[in-house]
Write a protein that binds this DNA or RNA. Structure first.
Lengths: 235, 235
DNA sequence: ATTACTAGTTTACGAGTAA
DNA sequence: TTTACTCGTAAACTAGTAA
C-alpha cells in the first residue's frame, strides 16, 4: 500500500493536485484562477480557494497570488503523493509480471561478496532461491528511465530474505526478485536474482544481481557493457 | 444510458473503489467487511458502509451481503472509472512522447484509397506531412492491450487535417500522428503517419497508416503479419 | 478582475441500535 | 458477529462581502 504521509489532505484535494499536474504543474509554475478551477470542479470558487489553501498548508503546493489569479507549482511532496497514486493504478492495470531495466555494468564496492557469503544469508539463498550464489554481485548502473521504471518492481512479488544477527551486530532483511540478464550481444542468463535491502534504498540507480555463477565470466561482461535485466514475478 | 439513478460519486468513494481493485476486485468477487474497510480508511464502519452503498447505487460496484460480511465485484462502469484515473496519471508521469501499438496487418475496406486521393485532403498531406501519400492505407488489427494503450495517443500532439466540402457533401476533419512501422523481421519504415477521423472512432481496434510508399511492398507485408507501430509526437 | 474572510445552510460523520 | 438504520453533532459547502 501507499504509505504516503499525506493523511492531512483528503481525496478531494488530491484530485485538485492531479488536475494541476495535468496542466503542467510538475514542470513549473502554472497560472490558475479560483473561478476557472471552480468551474472544472463544478463547485464554488470559495471551495476552489480552500482546496488550494489546504494543499499549500500540507506542503503539496507552492502558491504565489497575484492580482489576476495565482501561480502554483507542485512541490516534491506533492509529486510524491501523486506518484503513490500512480503506482497504485499501475498495480491495478499493469498485470505484466515483468519489468525490463537497462543499464551498464559497473564495479561494485566489493561489499556484495562479503554479505552474500555470510551464513545467515547464505542459508536462505539455498532454501528460497534454490542455489548458493557466486560470492559477488553484478552491479548495474541503471539508465535514467529505468531508474523511474524501477518503482514498478514493487508491484511484483518478492522472495523475502529475513534479517538476522550474530554476536556483533544485526543484519537487515532484503528482497530478491527472479531476473534474467541479457547482454547487448544477445546472450542471456536466466537463473539470476536481483537483491536489495528491504528498507528504502539510497542507491535507486544501482541494481545488484546475484546468480549461481559469476555473471561477468558467463556473459563475458566488462565495466561499461550494456545489459538488460528482466525482473520478474516469483515463479 | 442506464435507467438507474446514477448518483455521482465523490473522490472518497473512488478511493474505496481503487482499494477494492487493489485487493483483486477487477478479477472477481472479493470478501470484505465494513469493519476491516473502516480500519483501512481510518473511519467508522458506518462511513465504510455508506461508501459501499453509494458505489453500488452508482453502478460501480456489485454487492452480495452475507452473514459475516459481503462479496463485492467491480462492474464495467467501475473499471472504466478507475481506468480514466489511470490514464490521467499516465499522462502526468509518462512524458514519453511515443506509444508502441502492436497488431496484425489486415485488409482494409478499400475506403482509404478513395479518401486519400481526394484533393481536399491530398493538398493538406503535402503541406503538413511533407509528402503525397500512396493512395491506400495499411490497416492494422490492434492487439487487445494495444487497443487499451491507444488512449495514451491522445496525450500526443497531432497533425490536424481540416474538414472540407465540395458540391456534393462534406468531408470531416482527421488527425495524423508521425509513426514508425516495424515488422517482426526487424525491418522499419520511418516516415509514416497514422490517420484517423477526428471524431471518436467506431473502430478503436483498427489502426490506419499512410506513407509516401506502399508499405505492403516496402516492408514485404501480408495479411496476418505482425507489426509494431510506434506512434510519436509532432517533430 | 482577483483571493479570502464571515455567516448561514447543507452535507457528511460517528455513536447507538435494530435486524 | 455482520449490515444499515436513526439522530445529534461536526465539518464542508455556498452566498455575500471586504481588501
Amino acid at each position: 500500500m501507499s504509505l504516503t504521509t499525506e493523511s492531512a489532505v483528503g481525496h478531494d484535494e488530491l484530485a485538485v493536485l492531479k488536475l494541476l499536474a495535468l496542466e503542467g504543474g510538475l514542470e513549473g509554475d502554472v497560472k490558475i484562477s479560483c473561478a476557472r478551477l471552480a468551474e472544472r470542479l463544478d463547485a464554488s470558487n470559495q471551495t476552489a480557494s480552500r482546496r488550494l489553501q489546504r494543499l499549500e498548508s500540507a506542503d503539496l503546493l507552492e502558491r504565489d497570488t497575484v492580482s489576476d489569479g495565482q501561480w502554483v507549482a507542485i512541490t516534491d511532496d506533492g509529486e510524491r503523493a501523486l506518484h503513490a497514486e500512480y503506482e497504485d493504478y499501475r498495480r491495478i492495470f499493469e498485470t505484466d509480471a515483468e519489468v525490463d531495466l537497462e543499464g551498464t555494468v559497473t564495479s561494485g564496492m566489493g561489499e556484495g561478496r562479503h554479505y552474500i557469503s555470510l551464513p545467515g544469508y547464505n542459508r536462505q539463498f539455498e532454501e528460497r532461491l534454490g542455489y548458493e550464489p557466486f560470492p559477488g554481485t553484478l552491479n548495474v548502473d541503471l539508465r535514467e528511465d529505468s531508474v523511474r521504471r524501477r518503482s514498478a518492481v514493487s508491484s511484483l512479488e518478492p522472495v523475502p530474505i529475513d534479517g538476522w544477527e550474530d554476536d556483533d551486530r544485526t543484519y537487515g532483511p532484503a528482497v530478491c526478485y527472479p531476473a534474467t540478464v541479457e547482454t547487448s550481444a544477445g546472450e542471456t542468463y536466466e537463473d539470476a536474482h536481483t537483491i536489495a535491502p528491504e528498507r528504502t534504498h539510497h542507491d535507486e540507480d544501482q541494481l545488484e544481481v546475484i546468480a549461481p555463477d559469476k555473471l561477468r565470466d558467463e556473459l563475458d561482461l566488462e565495466d561499461g557493457d550494456h545489459v538488460t535485466v528482466s525482473v520478474g514475478d516469483r515463479e
